[in-house]
């Protein structure tokens, strides 16, 4: 009926440098659609990865995180194979082979033992898993809340926005660590509750404000109006248009939240306020209550492994976040091509 005329030649020509389209079949069915989408996701992941690997610090930090993840996995394996639970259990074990606890590193205990005769390496490895669980749970909770709150506050504005933003101000004004100290004194906080509290405080606090300001710039884009003309309701616009455009920034703040959560755990555990079996903070706490923290570098194996792990894992997540920033935020990208 309609013939797109001579001009068609001008337009159907592809602009140079377009990657091959994942779908050329004229009448794709359900399966081809899903497949094409998967290929598309893979392609955009590859694109992001290519930018990420340009950052040396980012790659190094990611390698550090992978190393810690391997450490976390290695503990249950070692316990099941070469380590006897009587001796090597991070909490209840006792190294019968030595009498001079805390014993310095030796062949059977590569990082020595703590004042209670427990193997330090086993403690270090078993804590790694808790740190990951804590950090990632807190990050998911934070970002889940912050993304939704930011998008909703930016979209509706007015009273909804005012309420969420005053709440955020309130949370920011509260000194975070002191609040956690009070809470942990009132309730017995285990790993999960700690992750939840950190997640909620972060999610309704500063992260929500940052994601909201980003959402505000998305809300005024013409494609939001186009979606409304198409017939999209509030839910459709928030979840299909605003939130997907927030996700890159959310991912970034997930990394920063992991850093904050691990650090908060270390501080609270050091103060002996948490109901955890074992953690890096508790390891330092144990050294401190035994008076070994004042002994300078003489009992280094009680402090350095845990302290260094906290420092390295925290900075690794932070630096991965900074490297992701360049992927997410093209303005920061250095031109290398």
């Amino acid at each position: 009926m309609i013939s797109p005329q001579s001009d068609q030649q001008n337009f159907s020509r592809e602009p140079p440098g377009i990657p091959e389209s994942p779908l050329v079949d004229l009448h794709p069915g359900r399966w081809q659609m899903a497949l094409a989408r998967a290929r598309l996701a893979l392609r955009s992941f590859r694109g992001g990865w290519a930018i990420f690997v340009e950052s040396r610090i980012g790659v190094l930090s990611l390698a550090t995180i992978v190393l810690f993840a391997l450490m976390a996995i290695s503990h249950p394996i070692l316990m099941a194979t070469v380590w006897d639970a009587e001796v090597y259990d991070p909490v209840t074990g006792y190294a019968f082979d030595r009498l001079d606890h805390p014993a310095p590193p030796n062949w059977r205990h590569p990082l020595g033992t703590d004042p209670l005769g427990r193997d330090v390496l086993s403690q270090l490895l078993s804590s790694t898993r808790s740190e990951f669980v804590l950090g990632i749970t807190a990050a998911l909770v934070t970002v889940g809340i912050a993304t939704t709150v930011g998008a909703v506050a930016a979209y509706y504005g007015g009273l909804v926005d005012a309420l969420f933003m005053r709440l955020a101000d309130l949370i920011i004004a509260l000194p975070g660590i002191s609040l956690l100290i009070v809470l942990s004194a009132l309730f017995r906080l285990n790993l999960f509750y700690l992750a939840l509290i950190i997640g909620i405080l972060g999610g309704f606090g500063g992260t929500a404000i940052i994601l909201k300001s980003q959402a505000l710039s998305i809300r005024v884009k013409p494609y939001i109006e186009a979606a409304r003309v198409a017939g999209g309701g509030h839910f459709h616009i928030i979840f299909v248009h605003i939130i997907p455009n927030l996700l890159p920034l959310s991912l970034l703040y997930m990394m920063f939240t992991v850093t904050g959560a691990i650090f908060a755990e270390a501080v609270l555990s050091f103060l002996g306020l948490l109901d955890l079996r074992m953690s890096w903070g508790i390891m330092i706490h144990t050294a401190n209550t035994g008076g070994y923290l004042l002994g300078g570098t003489r009992y280094w194996w009680l402090i350095i492994p845990a302290g260094a792990s906290i420092t390295f894992l925290c900075s690794a997540f932070y630096l991965v976040g900074r490297a992701l920033d360049e992927v997410v935020n093209p303005r920061l990208r250095r031109h290398t091509s």
Partner: peptide, 21 residues
């Protein structure tokens, strides 16, 4: 109908891969 043919090759492009026209 709007002259973007073959249509299948456009379905899974993103807007930035297209010219203004």
């Amino acid at each position: 109908q709007v002259g973007l043919t073959p249509a299948g090759s456009f379905l899974f492009r993103h807007p930035h891969e297209l010219s203004g026209g």
